[in-house]
Amino acid sequence: MTFVLPVPRAFFVSKVDAWISGIAVAAGFTCLSIAAPMALFSTSTAEMAVLAGIVLLTLVLPIWLLLDTNYTVTGEELRIRSGPFRWRIALSEVREVSPSRSWMSSPALSLDRIRVQYGIARSVLVSPREKQRFVDCLRERCPAAHITGF
């Protein structure tokens, strides 16, 4: 009988640029400073509930994204988690890995990014704090992928 040892998971937290943190926090507090007085002086319960919901979303979502954006490489897939958003990419579908400084929206909290191309014309940008370890992990687990620029 042959035993196959499972491939250990590799966990990476996102690198966070200070200016992105600043924008997220400033946006949340700006919304709070506008909506809170409106809610305090509102006489309608429904209006207060809507304003409270908006304030919660604008405060909670940026903080959730800042505190919970990470990447896990398992034996079979790359799992990306960014607040309430999730991606699962089969490692067998990874075609190319390259550096990027794109401003495109993505689960990356830094402009020091890695573009992972997978499937047919699909890609995602990530920004692991331990960039080289992340690339080395993909290089090891995705031998068919074309890895450039590292």
Rank of each mutant, 00 (worst) to 15 (best):
R122F: 02
A108K: 00
I23L: 14
L61R: 05
A26S: 12
L125N: 05
F134V: 04
F41G: 11
E130P: 01
T43I: 01
A52D: 00
E96I: 10
G83F: 07
A52L: 13
G53F: 13
S106K: 01
F29Q: 06
R9H: 09
L66P: 02
V116I: 15
S105N: 06
S33R: 03
S21A: 15
W103P: 05
S14D: 10
S110Y: 01
E130Y: 09
Y71R: 12
G149R: 09
L109E: 06
S98F: 14
S33W: 10
A35C: 15
I20T: 03
F134I: 10
A18Q: 09
Q132G: 01
C142S: 12
I54V: 15
S106T: 03
T74P: 01
I147F: 08
V60P: 00
G149P: 08
E93Y: 02
P37Y: 03
L91S: 01
F150Y: 14
S106H: 03
T72M: 09
R133N: 11
S110T: 08
A144T: 12
P6N: 00
S44W: 02
T45I: 11
S82V: 04
T43A: 12
G53Y: 08
R95S: 13
M1V: 11
R95T: 14
V50N: 04
T2V: 13
I80C: 06
R129T: 12
V60S: 08
N70K: 13
F134T: 00
T69S: 06
F85N: 11
A18N: 06
M38Q: 14
I34F: 14
R133F: 00
E47Y: 01
R139Q: 11
R101C: 04
A108L: 04
E140Y: 03
S105D: 05
G28H: 08
T58I: 07
K131T: 14
E77Q: 05
L57D: 08
P84K: 10
L61P: 00
E96G: 00
F85V: 15
R129K: 15
L56T: 10
T58N: 09
S127I: 11
Q132N: 02
F134K: 03
S42Y: 04
A46I: 15
P8A: 11
S110A: 13
F12A: 05
I114F: 03
Y71N: 05
A145Q: 03
F12M: 05
A46D: 09
A10L: 06
A35P: 01
R81M: 09
R113M: 10
S127Q: 06
T43F: 05
C142K: 07
V126T: 13
L111C: 04
E140H: 10
R129I: 04
V7D: 03
S33P: 00
A144W: 04
V13W: 03
R95P: 00
I80K: 03
A24I: 00
G119S: 02
G28L: 11
T43S: 14
F29I: 15
T45R: 04
A18R: 14
L109Y: 06
D136W: 09
E130K: 11
L125Y: 14
S98Y: 06
M104L: 11
S92F: 00
G22A: 12
I20N: 11
T2Y: 10
S44H: 01
P8D: 07
C137T: 15
P99M: 12
V55S: 15
E96V: 07
V7S: 07
E77A: 13
I120Q: 13
